[in-house]
């Protein structure tokens, strides 16, 4: 009973905090409203007795929002990130898409005939989930991991205005590299 109440309170908190992302007028508040939303979801996952996944969700999301604060300054420049600003853009289309997606998902949830439970959950649900994800689908997971890493690196490379020729000279032979910000091990 208590678990049910906690679950629903967390669910409402997660949705409200998620909505707050668009109500507030500062990027810092939007970022951390999203973090609060994810923390509520993480605690819900804890209630589902997926301890590892719940705690890791909280860990990753808080860190992610902090990193977002770094990117905020790195890529947006100081002013737009630090001044009060609207968190919504292109309201008309966004509203139409949001309502459409919500109706489709809600209709799906309500109209689909849910199957009755067959069998019981495993003793160690985290291990079972890991087996399910990583066992037969290990190749997909490994490939997705590499693709994600490559995407991040490529995104930063495309966004950075200095290339390797700026760092190492036209023949790529200048050592140490000519960086505006020297590193700690003197490369």
């Amino acid at each position: 009973m208590l678990t049910h109440i906690a679950f629903w309170v967390l669910a409402v908190a997660a949705v409200l905090a998620g909505a707050a992302v668009f109500w507030v007028n500062s990027m810092a508040r939007a970022s951390y409203a999203l973090a609060v939303s994810f923390i509520a979801v993480g605690v819900q996952v804890l209630l589902l007795q997926q301890n590892y996944i719940g705690v890791v969700t909280i860990l990753m999301m808080v860190m992610e929002m902090a990193v977002m604060a770094v990117y905020m300054v790195m890529f947006m420049g100081m002013n737009p990130a630090l001044m009060p600003m609207s968190m919504v853009h292109d309201k008309r289309h966004a509203r139409a898409v949001a309502i459409g997606v919500f109706v489709a998902l809600a209709a799906g949830a309500l109209l689909v005939p849910w199957p009755a439970r067959r069998g019981a959950p495993a003793d160690d649900v985290t291990a079972a989930l890991g087996e399910e994800l990583m066992g037969p689908k290990m190749l997909v997971m490994a490939a997705v991991g590499v693709v994600m890493a490559v995407t991040i690196v490529a995104g930063v490379v495309l966004a950075a205005h200095r290339s390797r020729y700026d760092r190492f000279g036209d023949d790529l032979r200048r050592r140490p590299a000519n960086d505006p910000q020297p590193g700690g091990v003197g490369r």
Partner: peptide, 25 residues
């Protein structure tokens, strides 16, 4: 007696990122 206590510590220490930055902000 959390079965993932080590990860719990990690999740809590990451909160420092949020709290220290928020204090600065």
């Amino acid at each position: 007696d959390l079965d993932v206590g080590v990860v719990w510590f990690n999740a809590m220490d990451v909160l420092a990122w949020a709290f220290v930055w928020l204090t600065g902000w």
